[in-house]
Amino acid sequence: MRGNSHVRFGGRSWETDPRQPGHRAQGRPYIRSRAQRLGYDLAKIVTFSARTVDPEGRLVNVVQALDVDTVIAPSLEHFDGRVPERLVRGCELNTVNPEATYAPHAPFQFVDADGDGA
Results as ranks from 00 to 15, higher is better:
L93K: 00
V68R: 05
A73L: 10
C91R: 00
D69G: 03
D69F: 01
H78T: 10
E85I: 08
G81E: 08
V63H: 00
R89D: 12
E77N: 15
D80V: 13
S75A: 14
P84L: 06
L66T: 06
V83E: 12
A73Q: 09
D67Q: 12
H78C: 11
A65C: 03
A73C: 13
V71F: 01
C91K: 00
E77P: 02
F79R: 01
Q64R: 14
L59S: 14
V83G: 11
P74N: 12
T95S: 03
D80N: 15
E85F: 04
R86D: 14
V68G: 08
T70Q: 07
D67T: 08
V83C: 13
D67E: 14
R89Y: 04
T95Q: 04
V68F: 07
L93H: 02
R58W: 02
L93W: 00
V63Q: 04
V62N: 10
L76C: 10
Q64L: 09
S75I: 13
R58C: 02
A65D: 07
E85H: 03
G81K: 10
L87K: 00
F79A: 11
R58T: 04
V68E: 07
V63N: 03
E85D: 08
L93P: 01
S75K: 14
V62D: 12
I72H: 06
V62T: 12
V62Q: 13
C91S: 03
T70L: 14
I72K: 06
N94H: 14
A65K: 09
V62K: 07
C91M: 01
G57N: 10
N94V: 12
V63G: 01
E92Y: 01
T95R: 03
N94W: 06
A73E: 09
N94E: 14
L76Y: 12
L66K: 04
D80E: 14
G57H: 12
G57A: 09
R82T: 09
P84Y: 04
L93S: 01
C91A: 11
T70G: 05
N94G: 01
R58H: 08
